[in-house]
Write a protein that binds this DNA or RNA. Structure first.
Lengths: 227, 227
DNA sequence: CTAAAGAATATTGAATTCATAATCTATTTT
DNA sequence: AAAATAGATTATGAATTCAATATTCTTTAG
């Protein structure tokens, strides 16, 4: 997949700041200094400030009038809300995919599925997650709904930075694999109702949330003192 | 027209441009002139351009590198995709509302519902739609999910400008009212599965889409000539 | 020594300026 | 006369400048 080369400086800067947030170089609640980032990226304040406005719209940072920007502090409720929404969107993607997906696309997903099972049997966690993600993305792509994909992508961005803190227990892992077996069966039957329901109930996201409580909403050195 | 004198100038400008798009003063596909809007709002290009970036992120306009901004041209598929998504979100809002809604809130919605029925009996179309919208908004609010509400609001904004072109047929109207009767029953029983399903299937949005084909994607004088 | 007040500094908000790319117009060539 | 090209004009992209608000530091009163 060739990347569309962005000529827009502000978009480039926004993506870079997004990366900093995702990788924890900018902490939740941390004040974002315009000057500091300008120096870091070698751009002037104009495109940087445009990027900040865009990131605020995307929900990654928040802007306080006359007081600059800060990284959004994810609360447990906030993450929970986001996952509930993502589950609903995945459900919709499954329903739609059943209507539009081609035999070839199903075969490709079947292949991913089998690969994933192999990783599960070997207990290769990272490759498992990698392929798992590809399966969900394939179904999303097959939904043939651009708005849905855009929205899902945005929500995914917001909670990306809390993903690394997962410790899969054996019980949940086997359940997730069973879910995927059912998904695969529903998809190959093109049973949209079933696939939608399975994806909505698929708990892997919620597991993450459950194991997460300690990571998010950390009390930092920076003060908050707002409404 | 009152001039702008508020903090968060870019937000104000973005909202005003959004209004222009919604009310058809800026047409789909129409090139947006920065200078013209600057003069109109009495602001400099800096906050205006920030507003354009935000509007592009919200999906109302699109930015072409070095070639300015233009109002997004809604295609039938685009609107259809958006409504599919909104239906899924409404479904989720219903499920969640059943979990969190208070007796008082249900009573308030019951009151709105009865008022709506009255408007239906009198065939008062506009008041009917007004109260109808209030009911859906009340359920959304009761869902207790801020992210959901934010997303729904954004999607709603995108398709707002095609709403006025609806001609409700008697048959669809009576069906919509029946749907609402079922919704009300499910809500009062706090039957989240039922309410979710009813809201997802509730067709009023799709009626709009069906009667819409002539309105959207109008071929304007302005040229497009992109991928 | 603490706390309040005021000056100094730094940061943000917005307008202006400069640079570059796109568009338009007029002229030239076939 | 039609098409192509060079120059002029306009619009956009980005940096800089100016103005305001907020923050920090210093001084002074209690």
């Amino acid at each position: 997949m060739t990347k569309i080369l962005q000529r827009n400086l502000y978009r480039e800067v926004a993506d870079r700041i997004g990366d900093l947030i995702e990788h924890g170089e900018l902490l939740p609640g941390e004040r974002i200094s315009e000057k500091q980032l300008c120096d870091r990226f070698g751009v002037s304040r104009t495109p940087l400030r445009e990027a900040l406005k865009v990131l605020a719209t995307e929900g990654l940072i928040e802007l306080l009038p006359n007081r600059g920007a800060r990284v959004v502090r994810l609360t447990l409720k906030n993450v929970k809300d986001t996952y509930d929404l993502m589950a609903a969107l995945e459900g919709l993607s499954g329903e739609l995919a059943c209507q539009y997906i081609s035999d070839a696309e199903i075969a490709a997903i079947r292949q991913l599925h089998d690969t994933m099972l192999e990783h599960y049997r070997n207990r290769d966690l990272m490759p498992y997650f990698q392929v798992n993600r590809q399966i969900h993305e394939s179904i999303l792509a097959a939904s043939n709904n651009d708005v849905l994909q855009e929205m899902y992508s945005n929500l995914s961005q917001r909670v990306k930075r809390v993903r690394y803190s997962k410790q899969m227990t054996e019980r949940y892992w086997s359940q997730a694999v069973k879910d995927h077996e059912n998904m695969m069966a529903a998809l190959e039957k093109r049973d949209s109702q079933s696939l939608g329901q399975i994806l909505r109930d698929h708990l892997c996201n919620k597991i993450e949330v459950a194991t997460l409580a300690g990571v998010i909403d950390t009390e930092d050195d920076k003060s908050v003192a707002n409404s």
